[in-house]
Design a protein around this nucleic acid. Structure first.
Lengths: 245, 245
DNA sequence: GCCGATTTGTCCGTATGTATC
DNA sequence: CGATACATACGGACAAATCGG
């Protein structure tokens, strides 16, 4: 396992924040203290801290120190953040997850599909529709369109498990960058048919494009969620770059 | 203005990506070439690149180079990303923006409000409700609750303009970290009263907490959007290369 | 398949600047 | 004012991935 030194430090500090060794509101040891503790350079400590800062765990204050601002969330609904597979999210939220494949076909990208997804016209793709169950309740309708040349050997059987596990572990693909858009839309007839919406007539939608390590967009996907099972978290840090306006 | 060297390099490369000096899909000059161009160390170049990577502009490939993956979006709806004020977003989307204050009161945090916002019971706060207009159409219902001790001199007049401009420019406050949650909810009677929802009966909701440079949470806020005027963008990178020297 | 050149990734030590107390 | 702590920047070293000969 080629884990960088900074990653181990990052994980260790993160753990200590989560288990309240470093409680909310307190200051972390100084960077120089960390260099002694982890026997590394100050740069390496700062690198670990910068990741935690980006994740909203800490906040650095020039001349003062580094404060813990992480607070565990007690919300029990389905939360989403980072690049995470459906089953990973389910496990983190302590829910039982199932997947049912309702569509798995080959397609050639036509004009309409190209406009929607960004794939060039003529590109062979896999078109997959799946229903996601949480605690035996259908709550997510997933559409995935994969560039066929990038995902050889993909089958419905794999789709019913975890496609991403297959891509990463079996094909050795590195999934690197993902661009997503979040909206809310009126439920379509298909949504109502497959998702147990109860009294709701709308869905939360994530639409995304995924790029692999070769820089090619290999997937377009859309997840249509039951509103009660949709919680998207985001942490932003202002970087004081263009104050001049 | 104490702009760091890495910030200038970052801005320059970003601009050249946006104006297609470095077009989509091509590779940037190598890091060593950039050190010659900008007369700086390789670390400084890498720092600029790491920001662009985090923003989804580029993607680094070990042993190969750095590829441009930025594509301007042609969507005309109201988009949101990063920490940005309402008027900034409106300007970026070429829309005319107005704000009307419908509530501006002092409150002491009670038990119910504390549970909702995270402010301790007994904290004096400003409670503000505003309607946001885009091209003269009411489309966003904003609730802001500020810790009174952190925003002295806040008035309804300021609230009708830009509160954040006041905080940053007049009070000299540095807004640093913001945690947000995105959901979709059934429209309340208040939503229907103030937002021109037309045929929609639901809203997109951003709920957030904002921390200033002293690490105190000074604001809780919630924006309830007309679904057609809500587009949240996000870019995630699986690999962390946050070089913060 | 091997080798060397190129390119990015990780880590270090040091120096200096700036904010806080 | 000095001590402490974070911020920026430099230069060097070596590892790992890629690619062409």
């Amino acid at each position: 396992m080629p884990a960088g030194k900074f990653q181990n430090i990052y994980k260790d500090i993160k753990l200590k924040i989560e288990n309240k060794t470093y409680p909310f509101g307190t200051f972390l040891p100084s960077e120089t203290q960390f260099t002694d503790e982890y026997l590394c350079s100050r740069n390496t400590v700062r690198r670990a801290l910068s990741i935690l800062s980006g994740e909203g765990y800490i906040q650095t204050m020039h001349g003062k120190g580094v404060q813990v601002i992480y607070r565990p969330l007690q919300n029990s609904t389905f939360t989403i953040g980072g690049i995470e597979t459906f089953s990973e999210s389910a496990r983190r939220n302590h829910l039982h997850a199932d997947t049912r494949v309702i569509q798995f076909t080959d397609l050639i990208t036509d004009d309409r599909l190209s406009k929607r997804t960004g794939f060039p016209v003529g590109t062979p793709v896999f078109f997959i529709q799946r229903i996601r169950y949480l605690n035996n309740r259908p709550v997510i309708f997933d559409i995935n369109i994969f560039r066929a040349s990038e995902v050889p050997g993909l089958t419905p059987a794999i789709a019913s498990q975890s496609i991403y596990n297959y891509l990463e572990n079996d094909l050795g693909m590195q999934i690197v960058t993902c661009k997503r858009r979040i909206t809310a839309e009126k439920a379509t007839q298909i949504d109502c048919k497959y998702i147990d919406l109860k009294s709701y007539d709308f869905v939360s939608v994530i639409t995304g494009q995924t790029y692999n390590a070769n820089g090619v967009m290999f997937e377009w996907n859309q997840s249509r969620h039951h509103p009660e099972y949709f919680n998207f978290y985001d942490t932003v840090t202002r970087k004081r770059l263009t104050v001049t306006e």
